[in-house]
């Protein structure tokens, strides 16, 4: 017979009274959701892939240009300047033009807005599941965590794919414009750093994009979540 008298110590925060959702389980559930909603996840991911690819493209182009200026001498300087790079021949440094910087920032902003939009949609679609979770005793933090893990998965995958794609395009671009010299002179370490920077930024954007939708989801009253139309 289960106890019906529990007035003593009804709510204490001891070991037997905790509520938890282990990281492993959360991760499995998020991964399952990701697979189950693969198409939607791909759409969310695609804007991230494009923005990060563009970022990586710009960064690696800069790496290639630096390599050319540093080791290839001044012969490339006019060509680079013509292509919109700011080249300082006396110092042997090169930087992107302000216009390009603005386009990159803008594209990242647009991408973030796109992610927020897509994630809001995916949260709305799942109001019911969120309601069920809450009825079964899930804490707000668990719901938040599930969405964050999912966004992290999308973020890492999308950003890595985008960065890799951007690098490939930058190399092709270098090959076409400057010939094989561009591939020989570029520092691979710099390219790798660019890859990491682009991936990290993409990952952060994915997390930033999901924060607002996930907080809305986590704070929902169970009754409202369960009765939500979708």
């Amino acid at each position: 017979m289960p106890k019906t008298d529990s007035k003593t110590g009804f709510f204490t925060h001891d070991e037997s009274h905790r509520i938890e959702f282990p990281w492993k389980k959360s991760f499995e559930f998020a991964l399952q959701n990701f697979r189950h909603r693969f198409t939607r996840s791909l759409i969310t991911m695609s804007s991230l892939v494009l923005a990060v690819a563009f970022l990586a493209f710009i960064l690696v182009n800069l790496n290639i240009a630096s390599g050319l200026v540093e080791f290839g001498g001044s012969q490339f300087a006019p060509l680079l300047m013509e292509m919109g790079f700011d080249v300082d021949t006396s110092l042997g440094t090169v930087s992107t033009g302000p216009k390009e910087r603005w386009i990159v920032i803008l594209s990242l902003l647009v991408c973030t807005v796109g992610i927020v939009n897509a994630q809001l949609m995916s949260v709305t679609e799942r109001f019911r599941v969120i309601g069920i979770f809450k009825c079964l005793g899930a804490l707000d933090s668990m719901i938040l965590r599930l969405f964050l893990i999912e966004a992290a998965l999308i973020g890492v995958a999308g950003a890595a794919i985008g960065a890799a794609g951007g690098i490939v395009f930058a190399f092709l671009n270098g090959l076409v414009n400057f010939g094989v010299a561009s591939l020989i002179l570029v520092s691979l370490a710099d390219v790798f750093v660019s890859f990491l920077i682009a991936t990290a930024i993409g990952f952060c954007l994915s997390i930033i994009g999901v924060l607002y939708p996930a907080i809305i989801a986590a704070r929902m009253e169970p009754v409202k979540a369960l009765n939500a139309q979708h």
Binding site: F11, H13, H17, I19, Q32, N33, H36, R128, V129, G131, I132, F133, K134, C135, L136, G137, A138, L139, D140, P222, L226
Partner: peptide
């Protein structure tokens, strides 16, 4: 008077819910 944690605990251990629309999670 319960805080969010205690309420979650109540829903988790003290009460079991059954709904008209079943409300079981479709992906599991």
């Amino acid at each position: 008077q319960l805080d969010a944690y205690e309420l979650a605990w109540l829903r988790n251990r003290k009460i079991g819910y059954i709904f008209q629309t079943f409300n079981i999670i479709p992906t599991l």
